[in-house]
Each structure stands twice: as structure tokens, then as C-alpha cells.
Design a protein around this nucleic acid. Sequence first.
DNA 1: CGATATACGCTACGACTCGTAGCGAAAGAG
DNA 2: CTCTTTCGCTACGAGTCGTAGCGTATATCG
Lengths: 206, 206
Amino acid sequence: MTPPSGPRKGRPRNADADGAILAATREALAELGWGGLTMGDVAARAGVAKTTLYRRWPSKNELVVAAVAEQLDELEMADLGSLRADIEAVVAQFAALLSAPETQAALLALFAEATRDPLLRRRVRESIIEPQKRLVIAGRAAAQARGELPMDSCEEMASAAVDIIFDTVAGTVVHRMLVSGEPATAEWISAFTTLLLAPLTEIAAG
Amino acid sequence: MTPPSGPRKGRPRNADADGAILAATREALAELGWGGLTMGDVAARAGVAKTTLYRRWPSKNELVVAAVAEQLDELEMADLGSLRADIEAVVAQFAALLSAPETQAALLALFAEATRDPLLRRRVRESIIEPQKRLVIAGRAAAQARGELPMDSCEEMASAAVDIIFDTVAGTVVHRMLVSGEPATAEWISAFTTLLLAPLTEIAAG
DNA sequence: CGATATACGCTACGACTCGTAGCGAAAGAG
DNA sequence: CTCTTTCGCTACGAGTCGTAGCGTATATCG
């Protein structure tokens, strides 16, 4: 399915540059914000020329999207044997990721720009939001296999349940850490999971 | 307490200009975003000279902060007769505020800048976050007075409950409307309130 | 009334950034 | 070796930020 991924002839691209550039982008975004981030500064941090950035990403927006998407791809779904444990593990992972200042500034700056740029918003949805819903889908499937949640009555209900669960989990954690500015302690994660579990079974049943 | 507020001699400032400039800032922010907003454009929209902007606000950041703060001063809390009605009213009010494109871009842009500016973050917390938490506190107190919720066992538990409820409500609504991009319909508000009510009593009791 | 003091609109300016183009050199494929 | 692509470097036009200067308008004070 995947195309041959690039040209066969000519000098190959520096394989290390992509990671260095994306890391430098997140670092600069945390220090300077969206408005303060400059392509020249990112290039200097990554140790490459500015033209190399534009050779790999068409604009500043696309570069930042790629940098944030790469960061969020680290999230994984662990099957720990119970729905409560799985939820707490995912929330803890997400919270740990959002505790890094570079991720905080990157995510919010990206979301802010996405509210005005429909194309960027679509890119964010396709590259960041939709891929993360896999965590909810996987967790629900595991719980259903264990008998903790009833099977879905129809496909449409299952999709709606995934959407609202994802919005609730992601939105609540993001709001606590980025807007309220409070850390996600183990006690808070436990309490939030309790709050989530009760309606969760109701949704699946309804 | 308030100082005489400005000089007594000389030509007074145009009283209408402040409102026109702040409105023009929010309008431009919705259309162009934080990065695309230019002082010259704001000045043209407001019908004033660019120098007038800098005579009243020291920089673009300060101008945007002032514009958003003025917008959020509209938030109020109405005490209806039941916990469900109170929750739905608050959610609907919040959703209505977030449905305006100018508020969407403005709020997220402001939050993004706040992640890297501690002073701005503190101002956002004091001017926006904490006042809204008081809405949750008032709603809980009213529900407890009506016997819909049990009284708090201790102050620390009550504070934790307020925090988690506030983050869940605000975070979920923000995530649905700004990230997922779906409107908060009356049906959705009703369903979300139902979901929130069950665990709400459990947490308050625990 | 005149003198004073401030706000206003307008223009111009230096410094900076975006995104592009051109150059010679480097590094792999055929 | 030849061809192709990437690399770093430099330079450029367009656009923006924030400031400064100018003449003018509008207020208060003596």
C-alpha cells in the first residue's frame, strides 16, 4: 500500500534531520509561542539550513502540525485486565505528555490557529484527533471481550459512544492541565475514572 | 481608591474608540487568527490610526488580552429551581459563548499564549477560570440546600469535587466545540447533563 | 482671550520574518 | 562517469511590528 516513499536516484535526505527539526520546533514553540516561532530559529536549533525546512514541509503551519502529531503518536493502549486500570493508564500517559511545557504550548497554539484556518483544522483532525480515537476503540473492545461492557447494539451507537468518551476524556484532561493549570495527580486520575465509569456502562447499555 | 484616572488637561481621548478597537480586534482575531492579526488592519476596522492603538495598549498581546477579557465579562449565573436545570443553563451559556467564532479563536489564542507567559496565565486564572468555578460552587450549594445532593463531608473533598466537575464540564464542552468541531445542540446538552448527574451524586457522597 | 497640554491622523522609518530563488558542492543510483 | 537530488549559503520582495515626527484638533488653566 505504501508507495516506494520517495525518489530512488539522487542524494538521499538526512534521516536524522526530520526528528531534529520536529524536536527543535516543539522546543521553540514552548519558548516563543506560535507568534514568536521563526523558521530561521528552528533551523538554527536543528543545525540545518532554513531551505531544508521548506524542502520537507510546505509552510510553518504544516511543520508545527507534524511536530505535535509526532509527539502524540507516543500514546499507546495497554491491556491491563480491567477497564478501570486501562482508563487510568491512558489518562496517566496523556497527562504525562501534557505535563511537558513544549507539548502544552504546541497543542494549544495549534488548536488556536486551527479555529480560524479550516484547512489546518482538517489537518489537525486527520493527523491528531482521529488517530487518537483508536485508544478509545481498543479499550472498549477489550472491555467488551472481558464482559465488562455489553456489545454494541448497532454501529452508529458505537461511533457516538466513542466520540463522546473521547471528547470527555481528552477534553477534561486537557482542560485541567492546560487551562486550570493543575497537575493530574494519581488521586485525581482515580476520581476522574470513577466519574467516567458510571455513565460509561449506561451509554454502552443504552 | 480609584485614582483620578488620567490627566485633566489636554484633549480627552475618544470615549467610543476603546470599544470600537476591542470589537475590531475580536473580529479580526476570528478571521485572521493570532498570527494573522495585524495592528494596521485592526486600526482600519475601528476607523482610527495605528498610532492610536499603541497610545492605549503597549503591544499586540496586551490589546488582544483586553479584547478577550471584555468579552468574557458577559458571563453570569442564573439560579433555577433544580440541579439539572442549573447544569443545563450553565452548559448552554458556555456553549453559546463558544459558538461565536470570534470567541473561539480569541479564547484558544489567549490560552496558548498563557502557557508560556506566567503573568498572563495568572491573569487568565483570576479573570476567567476562578469566576467560573464559583458557578459550580453556587450550583452545588443550591442543590445541597434543596436536598438533591448530600452535604460535603469535609472542605477538602468539596474542593476536589468542584475542581473535577468544573474541568469535566468545561473541558468536554470546549473539546466538542473547538476541537471536534461539533455544535452543542439542546439534545447533546441534555444527554451530557444526564451523564453527569449519576456520578455527580456518587462523588459528592464518597 | 491666550497659553498649555494632550490626543489625533498621517507618513516614514529600521528591524525583523516569511517564503522563494539561485548558486556551488556533496552524495548516492544507474 | 553521468544524472539526480539534497545540502548549506546568500540574497531578495513583500509584509509586519513598534517608534518617531509632523501638523492639527480639542480640552483645561490663568
